[in-house]
Protein backbone atom coordinates (compact mmCIF):
# COMPACT_ATOMS: atom_id res chain seq x y z
CA UNK A 1 0.00 0.00 0.00
CA UNK A 2 1.03 3.56 -0.56
CA UNK A 3 2.46 4.79 2.72
CA UNK A 4 1.27 8.30 2.05
CA UNK A 5 -2.34 7.12 1.91
CA UNK A 6 -2.15 5.76 5.44
CA UNK A 7 -1.33 9.15 6.84
CA UNK A 8 -3.91 11.53 8.21
CA UNK A 9 -4.09 14.75 6.24
CA UNK A 10 -3.29 17.82 8.29
CA UNK A 11 -3.35 21.37 6.99
CA UNK A 12 -1.29 23.72 9.17
CA UNK A 13 0.20 26.21 6.74
CA UNK A 14 -0.56 24.24 3.60
CA UNK A 15 -0.63 25.25 -0.03
CA UNK A 16 -2.78 28.03 -1.41
CA UNK A 17 -4.44 25.85 -3.97
CA UNK A 18 -6.43 22.72 -3.39
CA UNK A 19 -4.55 20.63 -5.91
CA UNK A 20 -1.81 20.02 -3.37
CA UNK A 21 -2.93 18.43 -0.12
CA UNK A 22 -0.54 18.38 2.80
CA UNK A 23 -0.02 14.83 4.06
CA UNK A 24 2.80 14.84 6.55
CA UNK A 25 6.08 16.30 7.71
CA UNK A 26 9.41 14.67 8.28
CA UNK A 27 12.07 16.46 10.33
CA UNK A 28 15.71 15.55 10.13
CA UNK A 29 17.17 17.09 13.27
CA UNK A 30 20.72 15.94 12.43
CA UNK A 31 20.77 17.45 9.02
CA UNK A 32 23.21 20.36 8.61
CA UNK A 33 22.19 21.02 5.02
CA UNK A 34 19.92 18.85 2.87
CA UNK A 35 21.23 18.28 -0.66
CA UNK A 36 18.44 16.09 -2.04
CA UNK A 37 15.24 14.23 -1.22
CA UNK A 38 13.63 11.29 -2.93
CA UNK A 39 11.63 8.14 -2.39
CA UNK A 40 12.05 4.42 -2.87
CA UNK A 41 9.83 1.36 -2.78
CA UNK A 42 10.95 -0.82 0.11
CA UNK A 43 9.84 -4.39 0.71
CA UNK A 44 10.10 -5.74 4.23
CA UNK A 45 8.12 -8.32 6.19
CA UNK A 46 6.04 -9.27 3.15
CA UNK A 47 4.82 -5.78 2.26
CA UNK A 48 6.02 -3.05 -0.03
CA UNK A 49 5.80 0.57 1.07
CA UNK A 50 6.95 3.96 -0.06
CA UNK A 51 9.87 5.26 1.97
CA UNK A 52 11.45 8.69 1.89
CA UNK A 53 15.18 9.15 1.30
CA UNK A 54 17.00 12.28 2.45
CA UNK A 55 20.57 13.17 1.63
CA UNK A 56 23.05 15.55 3.21
CA UNK A 57 26.65 15.80 2.02
CA UNK A 58 27.85 13.00 4.30
CA UNK A 59 24.80 10.85 5.01
CA UNK A 60 21.81 9.30 3.27
CA UNK A 61 18.82 8.36 5.44
CA UNK A 62 15.94 6.02 4.76
CA UNK A 63 12.66 7.02 6.49
CA UNK A 64 9.72 4.74 7.20
CA UNK A 65 6.16 5.68 8.18
CA UNK A 66 5.63 4.69 11.82
CA UNK A 67 2.18 6.18 12.41
CA UNK A 68 0.01 8.85 10.78
CA UNK A 69 2.15 11.94 10.35
CA UNK A 70 5.13 10.31 12.03
CA UNK A 71 8.22 9.19 10.18
CA UNK A 72 11.18 7.45 11.73
CA UNK A 73 14.69 7.03 10.43
CA UNK A 74 15.04 3.36 9.49
CA UNK A 75 18.70 3.52 8.56
CA UNK A 76 21.48 5.98 7.73
CA UNK A 77 24.36 5.27 5.39
CA UNK A 78 27.39 7.41 6.27
CA UNK A 79 29.41 8.44 3.21
CA UNK A 80 32.25 10.52 4.58
CA UNK A 81 34.92 10.24 1.86
CA UNK A 82 33.20 12.11 -1.00
CA UNK A 83 30.21 14.50 -0.67
CA UNK A 84 26.79 13.31 -1.82
CA UNK A 85 25.51 15.50 -4.68
CA UNK A 86 22.17 13.92 -5.59
CA UNK A 87 19.84 10.96 -5.24
CA UNK A 88 19.31 9.16 -8.57
CA UNK A 89 15.73 7.78 -8.71
CA UNK A 90 15.42 4.18 -9.92
CA UNK A 91 11.78 3.83 -11.04
CA UNK A 92 10.00 0.61 -10.09
CA UNK A 93 13.05 -0.72 -8.26
CA UNK A 94 12.70 -2.06 -4.73
CA UNK A 95 15.19 -1.85 -1.83
CA UNK A 96 17.88 -0.01 -3.79
CA UNK A 97 18.90 3.62 -3.35
CA UNK A 98 21.25 5.15 -5.91
CA UNK A 99 23.31 8.25 -5.15
CA UNK A 100 25.81 10.40 -7.04
CA UNK A 101 28.87 11.65 -5.19
CA UNK A 102 31.54 14.16 -6.08
CA UNK A 103 33.04 17.56 -5.43
CA UNK A 104 31.69 19.95 -8.08
CA UNK A 105 30.87 17.27 -10.63
CA UNK A 106 29.83 13.66 -10.15
CA UNK A 107 32.84 11.43 -9.57
CA UNK A 108 31.09 8.20 -8.65
CA UNK A 109 27.73 6.46 -8.48
CA UNK A 110 26.95 4.24 -5.51
CA UNK A 111 24.15 1.87 -4.66
CA UNK A 112 22.90 1.76 -1.09
CA UNK A 113 21.04 -1.37 -0.11
CA UNK A 114 20.01 -3.87 2.52
CA UNK A 115 21.42 -7.36 2.21
CA UNK A 116 19.10 -10.01 3.64
CA UNK A 117 21.88 -12.59 3.34
CA UNK A 118 24.06 -10.80 5.82
CA UNK A 119 21.21 -8.86 7.49
CA UNK A 120 23.12 -5.64 6.99
CA UNK A 121 22.96 -2.38 5.13
CA UNK A 122 25.83 -1.77 2.73
CA UNK A 123 26.93 0.26 -0.27
CA UNK A 124 28.82 -0.46 -3.46
CA UNK A 125 30.37 1.57 -6.28
CA UNK A 126 28.85 0.97 -9.73
CA UNK A 127 30.58 3.65 -11.76
CA UNK A 128 33.45 6.12 -11.38
CA UNK A 129 34.74 8.85 -13.71
CA UNK A 130 34.04 12.42 -14.69
CA UNK A 131 30.28 11.84 -14.92
CA UNK A 132 28.25 14.53 -16.67
CA UNK A 133 24.74 13.02 -16.58
CA UNK A 134 23.02 10.02 -15.03
CA UNK A 135 19.52 8.56 -15.11
CA UNK A 136 17.85 5.54 -13.55
CA UNK A 137 15.52 3.62 -15.86
CA UNK A 138 12.88 0.94 -15.29
CA UNK A 139 14.07 -2.65 -14.84
CA UNK A 140 17.09 -1.71 -12.75
CA UNK A 141 19.00 0.04 -15.53
CA UNK A 142 21.31 3.00 -15.08
CA UNK A 143 22.74 5.19 -17.87
CA UNK A 144 25.72 7.53 -17.39
CA UNK A 145 27.67 9.82 -19.65
CA UNK A 146 31.26 10.52 -18.67
CA UNK A 147 34.04 12.50 -20.24
CA UNK A 148 37.80 12.19 -20.52
CA UNK A 149 40.00 14.79 -22.22
CA UNK A 150 39.73 12.87 -25.49
CA UNK A 151 36.28 11.36 -25.61
CA UNK A 152 32.82 10.95 -24.18
CA UNK A 153 31.56 7.58 -22.98
CA UNK A 154 27.86 6.74 -22.65
CA UNK A 155 27.13 3.48 -20.88
CA UNK A 156 24.10 1.56 -19.62
CA UNK A 157 24.63 -0.62 -16.54
CA UNK A 158 22.19 -3.37 -15.64
CA UNK A 159 22.13 -3.51 -11.84
CA UNK A 160 21.82 -6.70 -9.85
CA UNK A 161 19.56 -7.00 -6.80
CA UNK A 162 22.63 -7.32 -4.63
CA UNK A 163 24.06 -3.98 -5.69
CA UNK A 164 26.50 -5.11 -8.35
CA UNK A 165 26.47 -4.65 -12.10
CA UNK A 166 25.21 -7.61 -14.14
CA UNK A 167 25.86 -6.31 -17.61
CA UNK A 168 27.14 -3.19 -19.38
CA UNK A 169 26.22 -1.81 -22.81
CA UNK A 170 28.14 1.01 -24.46
CA UNK A 171 25.99 3.56 -26.30
CA UNK A 172 27.37 5.54 -29.23
CA UNK A 173 28.20 9.05 -27.94
CA UNK A 174 27.15 12.20 -29.81
CA UNK A 175 29.86 14.77 -30.61
CA UNK A 176 28.77 17.23 -27.92
CA UNK A 177 28.46 16.56 -24.20
CA UNK A 178 25.26 14.93 -22.96
CA UNK A 179 23.69 17.05 -20.21
CA UNK A 180 20.64 14.93 -19.28
CA UNK A 181 18.81 11.72 -20.13
CA UNK A 182 15.12 10.77 -20.13
CA UNK A 183 13.38 7.43 -20.50
CA UNK A 184 10.86 7.17 -23.35
CA UNK A 185 7.39 6.10 -22.22
CA UNK A 186 6.00 3.70 -24.78
CA UNK A 187 9.31 2.29 -26.09
CA UNK A 188 11.31 0.36 -23.49
CA UNK A 189 14.51 0.28 -25.55
CA UNK A 190 14.53 3.98 -26.47
CA UNK A 191 16.39 6.68 -24.56
CA UNK A 192 16.59 10.40 -25.24
CA UNK A 193 19.19 12.90 -24.10
CA UNK A 194 19.89 16.61 -24.39
CA UNK A 195 23.34 17.92 -25.27
CA UNK A 196 25.42 21.00 -24.53
CA UNK A 197 24.88 21.99 -28.16
CA UNK A 198 21.11 22.16 -27.46
CA UNK A 199 20.14 19.04 -29.39
CA UNK A 200 17.88 16.12 -28.49
CA UNK A 201 19.47 12.75 -29.27
CA UNK A 202 17.80 9.33 -29.42
CA UNK A 203 19.44 5.95 -28.70
CA UNK A 204 18.50 2.33 -29.09
CA UNK A 205 19.46 0.89 -25.68
CA UNK A 206 19.51 -2.68 -26.93
CA UNK A 207 21.98 -2.10 -29.77
CA UNK A 208 23.69 1.06 -28.47
CA UNK A 209 22.96 2.87 -31.77
CA UNK A 210 22.64 6.65 -31.86
CA UNK A 211 19.51 6.94 -33.97
CA UNK A 212 18.93 10.64 -34.36
CA UNK A 213 20.19 14.07 -33.36
CA UNK A 214 17.63 16.87 -33.62
CA UNK A 215 18.31 20.52 -32.84
CA UNK A 216 16.02 22.14 -30.26
CA UNK A 217 16.41 25.66 -31.69
CA UNK A 218 18.22 28.79 -30.64
CA UNK A 219 15.39 30.41 -28.68
CA UNK A 220 15.83 28.19 -25.64
CA UNK A 221 19.52 27.47 -24.97
CA UNK A 222 20.75 24.85 -22.50
CA UNK A 223 17.51 22.85 -22.59
CA UNK A 224 17.39 19.89 -20.19
CA UNK A 225 15.22 16.84 -20.93
CA UNK A 226 13.09 15.35 -18.14
CA UNK A 227 10.59 12.99 -19.77
CA UNK A 228 9.72 11.69 -23.21
CA UNK A 229 6.65 9.96 -24.61
CA UNK A 230 6.27 8.21 -27.94
CA UNK A 231 2.78 8.60 -29.38
CA UNK A 232 1.28 8.52 -32.88
CA UNK A 233 4.69 8.47 -34.55
CA UNK A 234 5.92 11.54 -32.67
CA UNK A 235 8.33 11.88 -29.79
CA UNK A 236 7.08 14.34 -27.15
CA UNK A 237 9.92 15.61 -24.97
CA UNK A 238 9.50 17.67 -21.78
CA UNK A 239 12.32 20.19 -21.58
CA UNK A 240 13.16 22.63 -18.82
CA UNK A 241 14.91 25.91 -19.46
CA UNK A 242 17.36 26.77 -16.69
CA UNK A 243 17.69 30.29 -18.05
CA UNK A 244 14.08 31.15 -17.16
CA UNK A 245 14.89 34.23 -15.11
CA UNK A 246 12.87 36.70 -13.12
CA UNK A 247 13.91 39.48 -15.49
CA UNK A 248 11.79 37.84 -18.17
CA UNK A 249 8.80 37.03 -15.98
CA UNK A 250 5.95 36.65 -16.45
CA UNK A 251 5.88 34.61 -19.63
CA UNK A 252 9.28 33.00 -19.40
CA UNK A 253 8.84 29.28 -20.08
CA UNK A 254 10.16 27.01 -17.34
CA UNK A 255 9.00 23.82 -19.07
CA UNK A 256 8.12 23.16 -22.70
CA UNK A 257 6.61 20.10 -24.34
CA UNK A 258 8.13 19.78 -27.80
CA UNK A 259 6.94 17.31 -30.44
CA UNK A 260 9.73 15.87 -32.57
CA UNK A 261 9.22 13.84 -35.72
CA UNK A 262 12.16 11.43 -35.41
CA UNK A 263 11.86 10.52 -39.10
CA UNK A 264 12.34 14.06 -40.40
CA UNK A 265 14.12 15.59 -37.39
CA UNK A 266 11.63 18.49 -37.42
CA UNK A 267 9.99 19.75 -34.26
CA UNK A 268 7.32 22.08 -33.00
CA UNK A 269 6.47 23.47 -29.57
CA UNK A 270 3.27 21.94 -28.20
CA UNK A 271 2.85 23.67 -24.85
CA UNK A 272 4.66 26.21 -22.66
CA UNK A 273 4.54 26.32 -18.87
CA UNK A 274 5.59 29.75 -17.70
CA UNK A 275 6.67 31.30 -14.42
CA UNK A 276 3.76 32.43 -12.24
CA UNK A 277 3.36 36.21 -11.87
CA UNK A 278 5.83 37.76 -9.45
CA UNK A 279 9.53 38.41 -9.20
CA UNK A 280 10.88 34.86 -9.19
CA UNK A 281 13.10 32.83 -11.49
CA UNK A 282 13.61 29.11 -11.92
CA UNK A 283 16.12 27.27 -9.72
CA UNK A 284 15.52 23.57 -10.35
CA UNK A 285 12.70 21.22 -11.20
CA UNK A 286 11.36 17.73 -11.55
CA UNK A 287 8.77 16.12 -13.83
CA UNK A 288 6.51 13.14 -13.29
CA UNK A 289 4.15 12.04 -16.04
CA UNK A 290 2.59 15.35 -17.10
CA UNK A 291 3.19 17.25 -13.85
CA UNK A 292 6.13 19.60 -13.42
CA UNK A 293 7.40 21.07 -10.15
CA UNK A 294 10.07 23.70 -9.67
CA UNK A 295 11.74 25.61 -6.88
CA UNK A 296 11.77 29.33 -7.65
CA UNK A 297 14.30 31.94 -6.56
CA UNK A 298 11.66 33.36 -4.22
CA UNK A 299 11.82 30.13 -2.18
CA UNK A 300 8.37 29.01 -3.36
CA UNK A 301 7.55 25.77 -5.18
CA UNK A 302 5.33 25.96 -8.26
CA UNK A 303 3.50 23.02 -9.86
CA UNK A 304 2.27 22.88 -13.45
CA UNK A 305 0.01 20.72 -15.55
CA UNK A 306 2.44 20.50 -18.48
CA UNK A 307 -0.15 19.42 -21.05
CA UNK A 308 -2.33 22.45 -20.33
CA UNK A 309 0.54 24.83 -19.61
CA UNK A 310 -1.17 25.88 -16.39
CA UNK A 311 0.38 26.57 -13.01
CA UNK A 312 -1.89 24.54 -10.73
CA UNK A 313 -0.38 25.17 -7.30
CA UNK A 314 2.14 27.31 -5.45
CA UNK A 315 3.69 26.48 -2.10
CA UNK A 316 4.82 29.81 -0.71
CA UNK A 317 8.13 30.07 1.14
CA UNK A 318 6.40 30.85 4.45
CA UNK A 319 7.79 31.79 7.85
CA UNK A 320 9.52 28.42 8.31
CA UNK A 321 11.88 29.20 5.44
CA UNK A 322 12.48 28.80 1.75
CA UNK A 323 11.89 25.59 -0.12
CA UNK A 324 15.11 24.26 -1.64
CA UNK A 325 14.02 20.96 -3.20
CA UNK A 326 10.95 19.68 -5.05
CA UNK A 327 10.73 16.05 -6.19
CA UNK A 328 7.91 13.77 -7.30
CA UNK A 329 7.82 10.52 -5.34
CA UNK A 330 8.30 7.23 -7.18
CA UNK A 331 4.95 6.36 -8.71
CA UNK A 332 3.93 10.02 -8.87
CA UNK A 333 0.99 11.75 -7.17
CA UNK A 334 3.08 12.68 -4.12
CA UNK A 335 5.27 15.78 -4.08
CA UNK A 336 8.22 15.96 -1.69
CA UNK A 337 9.20 19.52 -0.83
CA UNK A 338 12.35 20.00 1.21
CA UNK A 339 14.04 22.82 3.05
CA UNK A 340 17.81 23.15 3.61
CA UNK A 341 17.19 22.44 7.31
CA UNK A 342 16.22 18.87 6.42
CA UNK A 343 12.46 19.33 6.91
CA UNK A 344 10.47 17.55 4.19
CA UNK A 345 6.74 17.99 3.53
CA UNK A 346 4.74 15.38 1.64
CA UNK A 347 1.82 16.61 -0.47
CA UNK A 348 -0.69 14.56 -2.39
CA UNK A 349 -1.23 15.98 -5.88
Amino acid sequence: TDAAEQLTPVLPDGPREESLQFVSELKDSWCACAVDVGSVWWAAAGRRELRVVTASESAVSLWEPLAPDCWGRAYTWHLTEVPVIQIVPLPDTCNLVCVALGELEIGEIRLLLYSSETDSFKHSVVKTGNIKAVVGLKDRRLVCSSRTMQEQQVEMVLLSETGGSKNRQTLMPPEDTVTAFAEVEGIREALVGTTAGNSVVVWNLKTGQLLRKMHVGYSYPASICHRAYSDSGLLFVVLSHPHAKESESPGSPVFRVVAFNPRSGRSTGVMFSCLPPGPAGYLEGDVWDTAGAAVLTSGAVAVWDLLRGRCTAVLPAGPAGHWALARWATGGAVLLAGRCSGTVHLYRY
Binding site: I187, E189, A190, V202, N204, T207, Q209, L210, L211, R212, S230, S232, G233, L234, L235, A259, N261, P262, R263, S264, R266, S267, T268, V270
Partner: peptide, 23 residues
Protein backbone atom coordinates in the same frame (compact mmCIF):
# COMPACT_ATOMS: atom_id res chain seq x y z
CA UNK B 1 0.68 20.68 -35.49
CA UNK B 2 0.03 19.26 -38.91
CA UNK B 3 1.95 16.65 -40.87
CA UNK B 4 3.19 19.33 -43.27
CA UNK B 5 4.99 21.14 -40.42
CA UNK B 6 6.79 18.06 -39.26
CA UNK B 7 7.17 16.02 -42.43
CA UNK B 8 5.96 12.47 -43.04
CA UNK B 9 5.21 10.65 -39.80
CA UNK B 10 5.88 6.96 -39.25
CA UNK B 11 4.41 4.93 -36.39
CA UNK B 12 7.41 2.57 -36.64
CA UNK B 13 10.07 5.29 -36.50
CA UNK B 14 12.10 3.51 -33.82
CA UNK B 15 12.40 0.25 -35.76
CA UNK B 16 13.03 2.08 -39.05
CA UNK B 17 15.78 4.32 -37.65
CA UNK B 18 17.36 1.31 -35.91
CA UNK B 19 17.47 -0.54 -39.24
CA UNK B 20 19.03 2.47 -41.00
CA UNK B 21 21.53 3.69 -38.37
CA UNK B 22 25.11 2.41 -38.33
CA UNK B 23 25.53 -0.52 -35.94
Amino acid sequence: CSESDLGPISLNWFEELSAEAPP
